[in-house]
Design a protein around this nucleic acid. Structure first.
Lengths: 244, 244
DNA sequence: GTAATAGTGTCTATGAGACAATATCCG
DNA sequence: CGGATATTGTCTCATAGACACTATTAC
């Protein structure tokens, strides 16, 4: 707790960032090791406090993203994920945090953190299973972010954000399989994608692996809303949804 | 503006409430007439500032709901809609507002406001069209709330929240038609609803109107997530979504 | 040639949408 | 009975999913 030599502390506003990417065919989340006291040494989402009254939340999110993860701010679209305001979520006092979600394409191996003690990718499975313990309520925030990403893959062209500027349809399928956590039939996936006008546009062809027939390359198309949506096979066909 | 006899004012946290209901077969939103200075006399969403540091956002939302609209807090489920934090959104200074969305069943005609100068329902069409001008950025918040409600009708059993404890399938159809703003075929709607296990459960039958065959009555079932989803016919089959 | 991946064709079951037909009330 | 609404039946078309098959590369 903080020393109480003066007035009750005000409510502090913070931002937390859930940055997801695909590495080694697995969905991974960007985490930093906390360098200061509450939860020092624990893994946490990148983020921090608003620096001044006039700073907008999205500006703070972009600033933290640049500071802590050295990510290209321009290419990442941040989407508001939710507000986390349990009065007890931060031992330092009342901290209301606004979480943002972003999807990143595959990046050079180590994220060169300039600010945080250490920044790196972790498979989301280790977070969801509880194997990896996160500071504050960040496990819940990650859980919510993943569920949001899964849902957005159904109705939007978000999946292309996981890929580089050009990609194959198989690359795209890897995204869906990793985020949804289920296998898909390559043949049906291929036709479904190509039948959705504007989802992807041709970008030549190239040889990918050292084996097999080379795949055509595509770029993200103009369409952002998918109609009809991609269908996520249901594993629990009854009752309420079970997150985590 | 506020007088500046002391330190730069802190960031203030507020809640705004989008309460939707069905009246006269139209989607309507609860608005209050502002009694104090910024936008005095204009229509606005019910809401207000957090009263003390320890108050949670959801508690503040419920409190405002009770104060300004005299609504039964227990039956309404508030869902976080989003954060609105444009630094210029409130002339008094930096006010960050968290919006909540709730769906209310048909209620006794006049909402007896205890706090606000006046509270009442307005058809959302008048807000969306700009015919009715709202204070602050509340028109955007209402727009976002409606879009959220439309989307949730597809994938959740939210529609039953618009109805009373028991309702007919035609009542449910009225909800979908009003919120989506399109007509649906009664025969196909009927079968689709009954085929979705757990959406509704039987609750006897009763005569509704003075004419026609009496309909069976139902209650909301245990299912909250609809799989497969209800399908909202698409009016704009191409390109990006236009929220306006 | 074989191995491996990319891409196409085809069949089937299911479900959405159109709409005829029947049921059950009021007067 | 006729008018009105509720409920069921049936037909057609589109599509998801299963899966056989062909195409194109590396070796």
């Amino acid at each position: 707790m903080i020393d109480d030599q003066w007035e009750p502390p005000p409510i502090l506003l913070a931002v937390d960032l859930v940055i997801l990417t695909l590495r080694e065919s697995r969905l991974q989340v960007l985490l930093v090791e906390r360098g200061i006291d509450p939860y020092q040494g624990a893994q946490a989402l990148p983020g921090g406090f608003l620096q001044h009254t006039g700073e907008s939340l999205i500006a703070a999110a972009h600033r933290e993203l640049a500071e802590e993860a050295d990510l290209d701010v321009e290419t990442l679209r941040l989407e508001q994920l939710g507000v986390y305001d349990d009065p007890d979520r931060d031992p330092r006092g009342r901290v209301v945090s606004v979480a943002f979600l972003a999807i990143a394409p595959r990046l050079p191996e180590p994220i060169a953190g300039t600010d945080a003690a250490d920044a790196g990718w972790q498979p989301v499975g280790r977070v969801l299973s509880g194997e990896l313990d996160l500071a504050f309520d960040h496990r819940r925030i990650v859980t919510d972010g993943i569920e949001r990403a899964r849902a957005k893959l159904e109705h939007s062209a978000l999946a292309t954000a996981f890929c580089g500027p050009t990609f194959t349809i198989t690359d795209l399928q890897d995204v869906y399989e990793a985020v949804w956590g289920i296998p898909l039939d390559p043949r049906n996936f291929y036709r479904k994608i190509k039948k959705t006008d504007g989802f992807i546009v041709s970008a030549g062809s190239a040889r990918k692996a050292a084996t097999g027939r080379p795949a055509r390359l595509f770029r993200a198309g103009p369409r952002e809303v998918l109609y009809p949506p991609m269908i996520r096979p249901v594993d629990s066909p009854n009752g309420k949804e079970s997150v985590q």
